[in-house]
Design a protein around this nucleic acid. Structure first.
Lengths: 218, 218
DNA sequence: ATTAATTTTTAAGCTTACTTAAATATTTTA
DNA sequence: TAAAATATTTAAGTAAGCTTAAAAATTAAT
């Protein structure tokens, strides 16, 4: 299967998973940086391969086969991120970018070797869970976004859901990092802004950030 | 530049380097597993990009730009081989296969990080020299093939010039490994067969093997 | 030195993964 | 609920990287 197909299936999986918007060709196209017609074409092609269900004007839905493919790619991505993060002094954003390419050129054998080497980690450096070789995610996710966090409570950062460089740079500068602890000092105006205390810093985060930082209550 | 282009340029570089046959489209095509017309087409295309010189019916020759590209890919290949070999229990053949894919999806930055991590190694696990970031090979190669080795003398294995699984399996079984020591006990019939003593084994190698095992005199 | 064998090139055509423009369907909003 | 806005699909076309078949040139052999 081609890189284009793997990326398409992965995009549906990610979109679907986090339910940000409905999973129609146009949305997937935007995520992949291709045109809508290209996405519609691809959707039809993948339906013929039994990777997804396609009906005109309806949301795309992965079949079991499609989900398995997506999880296999996601596994490789997160294993690469884990390995590169451990070995090299590279930013989370750089690591993400490298993993985005390597994930498609990695045999199941190599993925297993990487997993073994790392002691079969359950989470990657962003806090995202790593599926096992069978495509199963064995950890249950109880995290919520910072926007939904409560004033006064203390949380552990569970995930940084982004691939934007500026976001990661900001996080790095402010100690916002997987497994770090923070306290919500104040929620403003319908929780569109959140003030947190983290380490020795106090920061106010806007909606863009409070919706992609996931936390677990301590 | 695409994977197809990188592989084409690399194939010319390798062919040219070791001078096995003349570097015409048909030869390159065979190495890449594509048809001769495809190779001719590609050659014309790459000539237009100033990566090689093309003249009808003549051997292909890389330009400086082409050579630089080839060396950059070769560098990444050999760095990956070095890293995978060090980290994982994988055969030389498996490592070669993985590196063949990863080499095209590796930024210069990541290559540099790998090189740094390994202490800027000068040779990969096959004994092939690793070009530096500028595409320079700083080590001089004094090795000869086993076919050219002399009876009674002792040598160190310098390179295993192959990507054939059976060859590597045979080597692994018989202690034929980069930097190991062997003694040429006998040369037969115009050096088409060579008997060597290596470790506790005595082995007779035929022409196929004596021409791809490179050694340095001790 | 011709002829035969081999290689290279030309030509035509295919698949994948895109594009833009226009038509059609769906959603939103007034 | 009808018009306006938006999204999806159809249609036509492109570039990359291949293919096979046939023509042309080179190389090898008698």
């Amino acid at each position: 299967m081609s890189v284009a197909i793997e990326n398409f299936v992965k995009a549906i999986y990610n979109n679907d998973k986090h339910d940000i918007k409905d999973t129609k060709p146009g949305n997937i196209a935007k995520q992949l940086g291709i045109s809508s017609p290209a996405a519609t074409d691809m959707a039809k092609k993948l339906a013929a391969k039994d990777l997804l269900h396609y009906e005109k004007y309806q949301a795309l839905q992965l079949t079991e086969k499609g989900k398995k493919m997506a999880l296999n790619v996601v596994r490789k991505h997160r294993l690469w991120e884990s390995l590169l993060f451990k070995m090299f002094d590279l930013s989370l954003h750089d690591i993400h970018r490298e993993a985005e390419l390597l994930e498609h050129q990695t045999s199941d054998l190599l993925a297993e070797k990487i997993s073994e080497y790392l002691g079969h980690p359950k989470f990657d450096p962003h806090g995202d869970p790593i599926p096992n070789a069978d495509g199963k995610i064995t950890t249950t996710d109880t995290s919520i976004t910072l926007a939904d966090a409560e004033e006064g409570k203390t949380y552990t950062i569970a995930r940084l859901m982004s691939d934007d460089k500026e976001f990661f740079d900001f996080c790095a500068q402010n100690g916002i990092k997987y497994r770090n602890t923070l306290t919500v000092s104040k929620q403003f105006s319908g929780n569109k802004m959140t003030q947190i205390a983290i380490g020795s810093n106090t920061i106010v985060l806007n909606e863009n950030f409070t919706k992609i930082i996931y936390v677990d209550e301590n």
